[in-house]
Amino acid sequence: MADAHAHAPGLAHHFESYEQQKESAFLGMWIFLAQEIMFFSGLFTCYLVYRVLYPHAFLVGSRELDWRIGAANTVVLLLSSFTMVVAVLGAKQGRRKMIVLGLLGTLLFGGIFLGVKVFEYGSKWEHHLVPGPYFEWHGDPSVGREVELFFSLYFGMTGMHALHMVIGMGIMLVMLPLAWRGKWTPQNHNFVEGFGLYWHFVDIVWIFLFPFLYLIGLSGGSSH
């Protein structure tokens, strides 16, 4: 099939023009992201309902998280989004090294984020705050079970977010050698741009997770 379009490298056989191929790719990516929004909407609805039902327990649970770590990770993730923009800009201008450096930077910041996450999860495990049979609550006994619910959501939401990052970093590892060999040209770099959209989306999810998991207990709330 490639030989039918030998004159147009990178144009799939069923498209009439680069323009059509590009528009299809971006529309497809945005529809995929709409799908991702709905996937996360389940977790956010779950959070919303239990937050409404158990406001006090959620503040107590939130205070077990270290907001400074969350804030630091927010900065790291925003920086990774910026380096992703650099990679896309490089692809648009056909600057091979710029794509590679942008991807490396994104990988680096993504790696830092996940490393911090592993450290955080580890500390929750030590404090018996991982929901399930191992969970133990030594604080206010009247909210123990609802705090466990908070931690179910904490692990569910940050876990799904981290899973998306791991998948994204896996894809970037495949992209790196391709970028180095100059696969993407100013004419044909839909994959880089599409992947950029995915990475920014993952960033946006964290933008919502950070205040609603880490910060809700800061102001003292109704309990004190």
Partner: peptide, 13 residues
């Protein structure tokens, strides 16, 4: 397409 996702989550909420 962007708004479709946003409206979807709003309906769910």
């Amino acid at each position: 397409a962007v708004w479709t996702g946003v409206i979807g989550i709003a309906i769910f909420f």
